[in-house]
Design a binder for these strands. Sequence first.
DNA 1: CTATGGCACGGATT
DNA 2: AATCCGTGCCATAG
Length: 475
Amino acid sequence: MLIQRQTSSLRPLTTAHLAQTMTLLELTSEELRAKIDAALASNPALELLEDPRCPHCHRLLPPRGPCPTCSAPQKFQNDEPIVFVSPRQDFLPPSAGQRLTDEELPSEEWAAAKEDLPTYVFRQIAPELSVEDRPLAAHLLTSLDEDGLLGVPLIEIARYHHVPLGRVQEVQRLIQHADPLGVGSSSPQEALKIQLEVLAETRPIPPLALTAVDTCLDLLSRRAYTELSRKLHISTNQAIKLAAFIGENLNPFPGRAHWGDFDQAADHIQTYQNPDIIISELDDEQDPRLVVEIVSPYAGSLRINPLFRQAISQAPSDKTEAWQSEMDEAVLLVKCLQQRNHTLVRLMKRLVSLQHAFILYGDAHLIPITRAQLSVELQVHESTISRAVSGKAVQLPNRKIIPLSKWFDRSLNIRTALVKIIAEERYPLSDTQIAERLEEQGYIIARRTVAKYRSIEGILPARLRHSTPVAMRNE
DNA sequence: CTATGGCACGGATT
DNA sequence: AATCCGTGCCATAG
């Protein structure tokens, strides 16, 4: 209804309007910024009124974080997440005409840190960095090689900045736990160990994996399985499986692949994605609430230049046609933008309250939902949801950045339940037995599917899962 | 004979 | 219309 009224006001453009709304919807914040920048540059009818104030309550916004006034609990109904379009700039790369307002960061360091990977990591850890540690982080991050490993010794950095080694190590640790897991490590081993550590928190890992990467990395990379098995006192078969697990789940060169995974090289540039949506916890006394920010590429309001609007009536007759079309285009863009924001807000509001548990407590609590279901609830076309979801990245309160599409993973919750069962098993359970256990928990899936999930999670079949903490055979 | 992985089919999803 | 996912059937390994 609202949509119709809007479209009817600009008669001949209805279809164009819809088409553009859709294309805007599937753009990420970054792409949107590029689009708006281009429009601003080429279309004199558009004007950006920069305004560091909250678009809702018009109070001045803090440099980062939600609007303090709008997030005041009483303004929102209970247990609804707070969702709004945020003009936060710190997650977007600087673009023409707009400067990052981050004064704390030494400018040369920032200039050097402009590469994709370093910036990407820096954004993640920035909130946890103290101001004094920022130069350290910048130094570390700019010293990464193309594999995402640290090329220079920590000691050197410590000396350069005249700080104790421990400080540098702390910062390094922070970096290593940022998104390309293990990035900023001094060696492949170190990167692998970090990845294992983190992996171990969520799923069972083969007992010898740690020892293997620690001491036998050369064997692993040479695929010298027999030698490996001898060194670890396990069968060759197990060695092969172990190597497979490591190969599938770990990456000694964190800089290379990202969530886009195996397809490296190709789109190296786009692989590091900034969040389009940021979810944080309003760590507020009695009423913890989720705050959802939809990152907007501009601060202030994009609008029709009033001067242009006036000028159009007195346009020279040969130009009037052209001006009018520019005008229409500008109006269209603005409307579409509002439409996009509106849709996104509605979508996220619903989605966040639905997946509340998932956001806070992890994969196991993901409620399987399809885009189609959501589309009927929100009364929009399925493809609208699809477009809105595709390509977007969300930052969760735990600072992990995940693709929004993960929220629609039909089997994730079952898979984590499965992982848990296996982690807690007293003896290796066969797939059939696992299926039964899952059924007890209310997950009814076929035995065959258990096998599939297992392999997705990189878990060995029962026979090869013999707990081998103590190997008896010796050389 | 049991446990698993491969292939392929149908239905849902995008 | 193209793709993904769960599942059944069958071959194979142990």
